[in-house]
Design a binder for these strands. Structure first.
Lengths: 161, 161
DNA sequence: AATAGAACGATATACTATACCGCACCTATG
DNA sequence: CATAGGTGCGGTATAGTATATCGTTCTATT
């Protein structure tokens, strides 16, 4: 099965992770005529700071500290932009948001959520997509959106427990 | 692939659907020493009324009408009981709840959510479970809970569109 | 410079969920 | 019988998440 995931659970050069993602998003915006405004960029950076999900109000607190907005609509508008354009994802189970680290427009990955360290990895798996498509088509259902959120323990936390 | 789903998208004897589920839950409670109190039973019935997800406050309005409770904790306590014991499920994507129509304790099905008619079907698929397990184990992740919610169109609504 | 659309600030409100306290009831046990 | 522990529930209050709306400002383009 063809499976790939973000390196959230492994030691990696996270500075590079951040810079390459911000650069990629900036380029995508330029190309697609989208505005990566200061608020939007800052929210993306906040989400990228760790591979963890942040709630809208945590982001809002950080925006306030930066003088970039003080009311809920500010952060929700930025999140709408980021999620709508595939630069971030909402984790339904947590009512929280993560930056997207995969260079692929409008994909719909599975998320691995570690309950130990709260890290989140994004996994793209052909086998999983196929299984969902098969499950749906078995009863004549036409798939439009998928939410796949898997909770458990990442390798490090599994050992520690 | 072994796949089975609830008949939510098909014409079926829904009265029978309701009665058999209420009976099954009552039996399970008796067997496991759980109390199917009036509030809990009523919430289950409300959820069973249609194969659709209901929000906590919709349920609360109905409970009020029946004189069975008037404040949020009443309905959330009932939902905690039903979900905790596998008699109902929370649909994370909708922040809403559905009755469980599958006779299997503590399972973790996929949900098919029709955006046309709002019906929800529960699908048990071995292939899907395997794919999730494979995706997770590919990066050493230990699965504890799964959320799989598939949005799209049921057979009838797909034709109508 | 004029204009149209996008983004933003600000206020208000809606929707979802939980913490906490005290009472009533049951029943197990001394 | 007394009482202690557990469970469920009513009620108050509050926490947490999200959106509607309106008027202004910014930006790209004419």
């Amino acid at each position: 099965m063809n499976t790939s995931e973000t390196p959230s659970f492994e030691r990696h050069d996270h500075e590079r992770c951040i810079h390459s993602t911000v650069g990629r998003v900036a380029a995508a915006c330029a190309e697609r005529g989208l505005q990566l405004t200061p608020v939007r960029k800052r929210v993306l950076e906040l989400l990228l700071d760790q591979h963890k999900a942040l709630g809208a109000y945590e982001l809002l607190d950080a925006l306030r500290a930066d003088g970039l907005g003080s009311q809920p609509p500010a952060v929700y508008r930025a999140l709408e932009f980021l999620v709508g354009n595939g630069f971030a994802h909402k984790i339904e189970r947590l009512n929280a948001f993560v930056a997207c680290c995969i260079d692929e427009t409008q994909h719909s990955p599975a998320f691995l959520i570690c309950r130990g360290c709260n890290a989140i990895a994004e996994a793209e798996s052909d086998g999983l997509k196929t299984a969902i498509e098969d499950t749906a088509s078995a009863c004549g259902f036409v798939v439009e959106q998928r939410v796949v959120e898997i909770e458990g323990l990442c390798p490090q936390c599994a050992i520690a427990q």
